[in-house]
Design a protein around this nucleic acid. Structure first.
Lengths: 239, 239
DNA sequence: TTGCTAAAATTGGTTGACCAATTCAAAGTC
DNA sequence: GACTTTGAATTGGTCAACCAATTTTAGCAA
């Protein structure tokens, strides 16, 4: 293989190639759950890539629970059913291909749950932080700074997620929000001209302060409705 | 720094140290959103670690949308509000500390949504795959193989998530399920002796086949109720 | 002073080499 | 023959060095 050649957009990244290949070995029956897969050096040589890429790929697979790696011993396929494993593989390979419609839809589900749980369980300290985020949002609105509005809007929603008391929910929301934000920017959604979201944020804070879970959840749902409809349109278009 | 010293459980992994430090610089005001952070070599030298760890940490931060790295140019902090950025940092640092209660609670939220959406939108082909997973599950049950039951149960739920048509939902579920599964194993939950989940799976398949979203969602909720109660107990204990 | 050009320094991307822990099999012992 | 010992080979973990693209700077010309 040529040395020091950057990977053009046409050819796949070694990362993908390796993961796909390991998946193939599993489907072929060449390897079974529980087996130890070839050493990193071996894999690197087979695919004609550096060991770094192999390690990177294996690390990703480990993150998804497909393999376990024991130092100075080897990397092993976990003892799940082949079908189950293949399902995870499919997800790992597509993970960066989160389509926008799915993300937005998912955001709505998570945010509504977060609002409900936050109204139920928020501590006083968390409420203070939500209030602070709200104030920053209002200030950005009055200032008319579009970029600041995005940023503080994001922060407001994040504090609510934190107030849900569910660390997993919070992390998952964080996982998709940056992508969604950048999409908003491109499409110039949530213009600063529209004051409706501002009122909704204020009201949302009140419901959370008053600990009214269902009302808060409903309002959050309404708050994201515009975006949801947009997602539905996208879904229809792609059909 | 000593060479080739494995990191004991007491001292933190370089990965964490680097991320924490970058966060600190941001909070100090030493760096602002949009700034370029020091070169990888510089950071490596400062923290007395290898460049590998710096790159690993930066890659993680890039994955969470905190920084953007441009080849041969540098790594830049994205232009979000400082508060917003710090929120993400908190999540990145805690990500591997998904507490079990949160994960289980989250799983229930995701699975109920998945069941509903699956009943609405599943294609015929997806239905076939769900049926196949169900049959494997039943077979494992009759065979009395506990490990196989876990595995096929997991696969059944996965096919439903796939049938939801929402790739993000699917990926998120995949993200937490392995951890949950391993916890189940440790606690010997969902024993093969109990045939209730078996009946629920059969019924769930029927509702999805008949395209009855709300009933399917309700049943899924009931199906996970036992686990949810367990999570609530854990939450109370930790309070 | 201003604008342009080229070379030197800096950057992230990539690779090969080294390290200690583990594994495994052959030699040794009873 | 069964068990133990030992050392060589293999493993993942770590690090330093090299590469090409980019950025910065120094020099020169107008």
């Amino acid at each position: 293989m040529e040395k020091h050649v950057e990977f053009s957009s046409e050819e796949q990244h070694p990362y993908d190639i390796i993961i796909r290949s390991i998946r193939q070995r599993l489907l072929n029956g060449e390897m079974k759950p529980g087996d130890r897969l070839p050493a990193e050096r071996k894999l690197a040589e087979e695919y004609g890539v550096s060991r770094n890429y192999v390690r990177e790929a294996l690390k990703a697979l480990e993150g998804y629970g497909i393999v376990e790696t024991r130092p100075q011993s080897g990397t092993f396929i976990v003892g799940l059913d082949v079908n189950a494993l293949d399902g995870i593989f499919a997800d790992v390979l597509r993970l960066d291909a989160f389509d926008f419609a799915s993300m937005v839809e998912m955001r709505a589900i998570l945010e509504v749950s977060a609002a409900r749980m936050c109204a139920q369980r928020r501590t006083e300290e968390q409420l203070v932080q939500i209030k602070r985020a709200l104030d920053n949002y209002i200030a950005a609105f009055e200032q008319g700074n579009q970029e600041q509005v995005y940023s503080t809007d994001f922060e407001f929603h994040r504090t609510i997620a934190a107030g849900s008391g569910n660390t997993t929910l919070r992390s998952m929301l964080m996982l998709i929000t940056p992508d969604i934000l950048s999409s908003y920017r491109k499409q110039s959604m949530c213009s600063v001209a529209d004051t409706k979201p501002l009122e909704e944020h204020k009201l949302l804070y009140r419901f959370i302060a008053e600990q009214r879970p269902e009302v808060a959840a409903e309002l959050m749902n309404a708050h994201l409705e515009g975006i949801l409809n947009y997602a539905k349109q996208l879904r229809k278009q792609s059909e």
